Computed example of a mutant assay.
Amino acid sequence: MKKLTVPRFFITVLMVLVGFTLYSCNDNEGPDIPPVKIENLPGNYKGKLIIVQGNIKREGVKDFKVKKDTISFAEFPISEIVKTVVKDPVKAENAIKTLGKVKYDVKYAAAINTANNVIELTLTPKTMELQIPVDGVNKKTVVEFVSKQKGYYVGLDQTLRYALTAEKITVDGTVVTPYEVIDYNFPFCIKN
């Protein structure tokens, strides 16, 4: 029995040493992931959109275009904005239909973060002006957007992520109070 124990011990030690040797030969860099470039960012995107206002949450999919320094929406989602201004649900729906597609652009500055292989976007959203029709009168509505955090284009999976907040709404020069901010979150957007 002693003859069997000693060879098994040496075989085990030998296997462990061979395992460590093979592991040390392994290239620890992982798969080749090309570095992200600013040129990767522009294009047509489709992304998940989560709109949150207070306890109300709505999800959907939204298309937009990213240009050299601008994120452009051919149809920005305005229903929460209109329903904040027009409390009557029927009148609010009529106003949304009358307004139709609302275009909106968000300016950004891009910088590459090579350590994380991402493009960081510093968003500078402009105010949105709407003429919301109610009872035959247009209410001049100004929505002030902010971006509380940077957006990211992730090189690993080639996705875009960012968020906007409608921080304040003014109707005919009067600030809407009380007002719950409207958050527009784009957690996962891919190129079409």
Rank of each mutant, 00 (worst) to 15 (best):
V134G: 02
V134M: 05
T141A: 12
K62N: 01
N116Y: 10
K107D: 10
L156Y: 14
F73K: 03
E144A: 15
K91Y: 00
L164Q: 11
P178A: 05
V90C: 00
K148G: 10
Y153G: 06
E75Q: 12
V118P: 00
P89I: 14
F64V: 01
N138D: 14
T127Q: 13
D135V: 02
K139G: 06
A95H: 10
S72M: 12
R58I: 12
Y152T: 13
Y45N: 02
V176C: 06
I71E: 07
K150S: 11
V143F: 10
V85E: 08
P178C: 08
Q149M: 08
Y153H: 05
T124L: 11
R58E: 13
G54I: 13
G173E: 02
G136C: 05
T70V: 15
K150M: 11
V146N: 06
P125D: 02
E129T: 13
Y152Q: 10
N55G: 03
I132E: 10
N138A: 09
K97V: 14
A115I: 10
K150E: 06
A166T: 06
K126R: 11
K68D: 15
T114D: 14
V90E: 14
I132L: 11
Q131T: 02
N113F: 08
V82H: 06
I119N: 10
K65M: 07
F76L: 01
V90R: 04
I96C: 07
T70F: 11
S72Q: 13
D157P: 12
K91T: 08
K148T: 12
Q53P: 11
T70E: 13
T127K: 14
L123C: 04
N113M: 04
V52T: 15
R58G: 01
N116T: 07
P133F: 10
L99V: 04
M128F: 07
T174W: 00
I50H: 05
G155I: 05
A111I: 03
F73A: 01
Y153I: 11
T122S: 14
A115N: 08
K91A: 15
D63I: 09
T84K: 06
D172H: 08
V143T: 12
G151R: 03
N55D: 13
F64I: 02
L123Y: 03
K168M: 02
P89E: 12
E144W: 03
P77D: 09
K46N: 14
